[in-house]
Each structure stands twice: as C-alpha cells, then as structure tokens.
Amino acid sequence: MSHIPLLPGQIPPAITLALNGGGQVSFAAPGWRLFVVYRGAHCPMCRAYLAQAESFRAHFAAAGIELVLASADTAEQTTALMAETGYAGPVAINLAPEHMAMLGLFITDAGVAGAPRQFAEPAAFAVDGDGRLHAIQISNAPYARPDLQALLSGLVYDRDNGVAARGAMR
C-alpha cells in the first residue's frame, strides 16, 4: 500500500469507524475535532500516552474540540486498555490497513504478540469547523507522538484568530 499525501485544507477521506462501546465517527464530518491515531494495546508507550490524553480530554472539550483516539485494536483490546489507562473518551476501533493507507499513515507489520497483523504508527489529524484538514502530523515511530498540549493551544489559537490551514502546497 502506498501513502497518499493529504494536504491541509482538503476534506479528509470519507472514513467512518465504529466507536468502542457503540456509535460511529467520521473523519470527514464538520466540526472542530482532533483524531489521534495510536499504535494499540500491545504498545507500552501507548498506555502512558492514553493516560496523558485523559488528563487533556476535559481541556479539549472545554475548548470545543472533540478528541477522538483511533487504532487497529478490536473492541475487546480497546476495552481492556481503556480500563487500564483510565481513558474515558471516544475511541475508534478496527482501523483497517486500507484506512491507514487512505490517511497516509506509516504501517507496521506486527511481529509483536497481541498486536493486530498490521497497525498504524502515531498520527494526528485536526479537522476544522468546515470539515477540512487543519493540521496533520504523521510519525513512523512510537516515541514521536503528537504533543497534546501543543496541539490544543495551537488549534484554539488558530480557530479563535481565523488562521487558515498552513502548508497547503507541495
């Protein structure tokens, strides 16, 4: 699978995922939203990151930005991870390799017990009020994760000051 370069200002791919515990979420829906892709329950760094995400969840909500996590994990794996980390926000499950490719994510073929056959490396996609990509961060390594504090303050600043998405040209 090849990576498709997404550009800020574009409407994201029409990917709809099931949420753990019921419901669905769409990457292409309008409204300020931050999708954060994490590797999965098999990753020790993800556990610490999800605990940190829980500490920021109320701040994102107060700012009017929905925080949604996503991974290739099953509902069973996600439920166990949420219980362990205390994360109580929306989590999209079963992120498939074709979704990962549509988002331009780096994909790892698992050799780790408990990992999905293929899983995505960390990424973040901020969607603005019009449903367009505002900020994109894609990593190929578990230790190069999106900084939630920087994303929150930057997105609030951009939204409140009418700053357009940057980097829309290649």
Results as ranks from 00 to 15, higher is better:
A141T: 14
A75P: 01
V163Y: 09
Y87G: 06
A141M: 14
D128Q: 10
A70Q: 03
A72E: 01
D128V: 04
I93S: 04
L95E: 13
A115D: 05
H99I: 13
Q118H: 15
S153D: 13
S153W: 13
L148G: 02
E66Y: 01
E76Y: 11
R117C: 08
A96N: 11
A70L: 14
A113L: 11
A135G: 03
S153P: 06
A72T: 00
F56Q: 11
S153M: 13
G104H: 10
D73M: 03
V68E: 00
F56T: 08
T85F: 00
D109L: 09
L148N: 03
M100H: 06
T79M: 06
A80N: 08
A126C: 08
G86Q: 12
F56Y: 15
V112N: 08
D147N: 15
P97T: 02
V156N: 06
A141V: 13
L103S: 05
L81E: 11
A124S: 14
Y87I: 01
A61T: 14
G64W: 03
M102L: 14
Q77G: 07
A96P: 01
P122E: 06
E84S: 07
F56E: 15
V68K: 00
G131V: 00
A53Q: 02
A115E: 01
A53Y: 00
N140H: 13
A101C: 11
A96Q: 14
I138D: 04
L151K: 10
L67W: 00
P146K: 10
A124H: 05
F106C: 04
Y87A: 02
Q52N: 12
E84T: 11
Q149D: 15
I93P: 01
G86N: 12
A70N: 03
G162D: 07
S139Q: 09
G104F: 02
H134T: 07
G64K: 02
D158S: 09
F125A: 09
D160W: 10
F119Q: 05
A101K: 07
D130N: 14
A144Y: 09
Q137S: 11
G114E: 09
L69E: 10
R57G: 05
A75L: 04
V68Y: 01
L133K: 05
N94Q: 11
G114S: 11
D160F: 03
I93R: 04
A51Q: 12
L69M: 15
S71A: 07
L81F: 02
A135M: 14
D158G: 06
A120P: 13
G104N: 09
E54G: 03
E84Y: 02
I136S: 07
V91L: 02
A83Q: 15
S139V: 03
A53I: 00
Q52F: 06
F56I: 08
P122S: 09
G64Q: 04
T79L: 12
A58S: 15
S153A: 10
F60E: 01
T108N: 13
M100Q: 14
A123E: 03
D128I: 04
A88E: 13
H59Q: 15
P97L: 03
F56N: 08
L155G: 00
F106Q: 12
H134R: 13
